[in-house]
Design a binder for these strands. Structure first.
Length: 429
RNA sequence: GGGCAGGUGCCAGAGUGGUUAAAUGGGCCUGACUGUAAAUCAGGUGCGAAAGCUACGGUGGUUCGAAUCCGCCCCUGCCCA
C-alpha cells in the first residue's frame, strides 16, 4: 500500500512551511528571495508554476521533479499551474544544449500536449479539495497567448527591459557563443519565457516559478521583468539537476528515457527502473520522488548492503503508484516476484508479454523472436549476444540463434542479460 | 555581400584515392563476480546466414576504384562589410 501524502501532513503538524519542506527534501538549489517567499507562503495561497516542454509525446522521469514540487505545494494548500510549453517549444530553449534544437512542428506539439495531459492528473488535483482545502490545479498552454503576440508591441513593451550585455554574459548564452553559436530565435527564448511569467503574474496572480537549475537565468529574468514592467514581486526557485551516483542523467535506462506513458515504458519496466537504482541514490530519491515521511525514509535507509533492497522496493512501489496507480504496482510487483524470486515462474500473468501469431511463429528463428520481443535490436545483435551467453529461452542458455523457433508451449519466457525478461505468447487464429 | 575554415558512426574526433564498416576516447550493451547495487576484470557495439547491401551534409561528375579528387547546392563557425 502506498502511504498517502504523509510527509506533508507531518511537516504541517511540525509547523514546517512549504519552503522549509522543499529544502529538507532536497528540491531547493536556489531561491531568489527566501524570506519574502516564506512570508508569501505564510500569508495566503501562492500560485506557482512549472513549465513543461512538449517536444515528446510523453513526459519522462526527468519531468517528475517539477511535478513533485508542484504537487507538494498543492498539498500545502497552494495553487499549482502546470504550463505546457506549446508556444515556447516552437522557439526552443538553448539552455544546456550544445547544438540547436531540432525543430518540432506546431501540429506535433499540439498532439504531444494532448497526450501528456492525463499524466499531470496523477500528480495534481484539478478538482480541488483532495488534501483538505487545497485549490484546484490549473493546466495552461502558453501557445494560447504567445502565438498572438505582435512583434513590434512585444519589442517595445517587453524587449526594452532586457539588456543584451547582461544576456550575453549569462552562462547559457556565453557557452553557446563560444562553441556552436546561437541563432536569434534561441536568443529570444529568455524573453519569451520571462513574458510567460509576467502573463501568469497578471492573469493568474502567479508569483512563483520553479524549474531545474538550468532554468535559473530564464526564471529570474521573469522575476525581473515583473518588477520592471509591473512593479510586482515574484519569486524563483530551482531544484538541482539530478544525476545518478554514476553520473548519468536521472531517468535514462539503457540510453533511453523512462517515460510516464505506459505505452512507451511499461509500468513493469518503470517499476524495475527504480528497483535498480544505485545504493548511493536511494535516500535522495525517496525524498524527492515520494511523499514518505522523513522518519520512515531514515529507517528504511539505515540498512546497509543487501538490506537496502527493501528501501528500493519501497521507492519503486511509491513512485510507480504515483505514476501509474496502485493496480499497476501490484501487477509490476507480482511480475517481479515471479521473475526474480528464485526460479522464474513464466506463468505469472503480469509478466510483460509480446503476442505473435502461430503463422508468424512458424517462420521465425530464435533470433527473430528476440528481436520481436524488443530485447535486442537486430538478428545480428542476437547472434553476438548469444555468443556472449546473454540469451535465455525458458531457462536454457541459447546456443544457436539461427534455428527455427520451436517453443515447447504457447508461452515462452525470453531473457536477455541478467534481468530483462519478456514472454512470447503464440496466439492462434 | 566578401574572405577563411569546416560538415565523418550515439557523442567527441582521426583518416585526405584502394588493404577503411572507417583509428582512438567517451557512452552504451554483455559475460564473470554479486544483493535485480557498486567496484573490478574481460568481450562486444551498421544490416544481412552468406553473397552482399547501406553509411562519412546533398547532388552531379572524374576513376577500374572515392569519406578521400572536381563542379554545383545546403548548412555551421571565425573574420571583414
Amino acid at each position: 500500500m502506498p502511504i498517502a501524502a504523509d510527509a506533508i501532513t507531518e511537516a504541517r503538524a511540525q509547523g514546517l512551511g512549504p519552503l522549509d519542506y522543499l529544502r529538507q527534501r532536497g528540491y531547493v538549489q536556489d531561491v531568489s528571495d527566501p524570506e519574502g517567499l516564506r512570508r508569501a507562503f505564510a500569508e495566503g495561497v501562492v500560485t506557482a508554476y512549472v513549465g513543461f516542454d512538449p517536444t515528446a509525446p510523453s513526459l519522462h522521469a526527468g519531468h517528475m521533479l517539477g511535478m513533485m514540487m508542484l504537487a507538494s505545494l498543492q498539498r500545502f494548500g497552494h495553487r499549482p499551474i502546470a504550463l505546457g510549453g506549446g508556444g515556447t517549444a516552437l522557439v526552443g530553449d538553448p539552455s544546456g544544449k550544445t547544438s540547436t534544437r531540432a525543430i518540432v512542428s506546431e501540429a506535433e506539439i499540439r498532439s504531444n500536449l494532448e497526450r501528456i495531459l492525463p499524466q499531470f492528473a496523477r500528480y495534481l488535483d484539478f478538482e480541488g479539495g483532495r488534501w483538505g482545502g487545497n485549490p484546484p490545479a490549473l493546466l495552461l498552454n502558453n501557445a494560447d497567448w504567445l502565438l498572438e503576440l505582435r512583434y513590434i508591441p512585444f519589442l517595445r513593451d517587453i524587449g526594452r527591459y532586457f539588456s543584451v550585455n547582461e544576456m550575453l554574459a549569462a552562462e547559457t548564452y556565453r557557452t553557446r557563443l563560444e562553441s556552436t553559436g546561437l541563432n536569434f530565435v534561441e536568443f529570444n527564448y529568455r524573453l519569451v519565457q520571462a513574458y510567460d511569467f509576467l502573463h501568469l503574474f497578471r492573469t493568474e496572480g502567479c508569483a512563483l516559478q520553479m524549474g531545474g537549475s538550468d532554468q535559473w537565468g530564464n526564471i529570474t529574468a521573469g522575476v525581473e521583468l515583473i518588477r520592471k514592467a509591473d512593479g510586482g514581486h515574484a519569486f524563483a526557485l530551482v531544484c538541482p539537476l539530478l544525476t545518478t551516483a554514476s553520473g548519468e542523467k536521472m531517468g535514462k535506462s539503457e540510453g533511453n528515457s523512462v517515460w510516464l506513458d505506459p505505452e512507451l515504458t511499461t509500468p513493469y519496466d518503470f517499476y524495475q527502473y527504480w528497483i535498480n537504482v544505485d545504493d548511493a541514490d536511494v535516500v535522495r530519491l525517496l525524498r524527492l520522488y515520494t511523499f514518505l515521511p522523513e522518519k520512515l525514509i531514515v529507517e528504511l535507509t539505515a540498512a546497509t548492503g543487501e538490506g537496502l533492497r527493501e528501501a528500493k522496493r519501497t521507492l519503486a512501489r511509491e513512485v510507480t503508484a504515483l505514476a501509474h496507480g496502485q493496480d499497476a504496482v501490484d501487477a509490476a510487483e507480482a511480475a517481479s516476484r515471479a521473475l526474480f524470486g528464485g526460479a522464474p515462474d513464466a506463468d505469472d500473468p503480469n509478466i510483460p508479454t509480446t503476442e505473435i501469431s502461430a503463422g508468424q511463429a512458424a517462420e521465425m528463428t530464435v533470433a527473430d523472436v528476440f528481436v520481436v520481443a524488443g530485447l535486442v535490436a537486430s538478428r545480428g545483435e542476437a547472434r553476438r549476444k548469444a555468443v556472449e551467453g546473454a540469451l535465455w529461452l525458458d531457462g536454457e542458455r541459447v546456443a544457436e540463434v539461427d534455428e527455427p523457433f520451436r517453443p515447447g508451449a504457447a508461452d515462452a519466457l525470453l531473457r536477455f542479460g541478467k534481468k530483462r525478461y519478456r514472454r512470447i505468447r503464440i496466439v492462434f487464429g
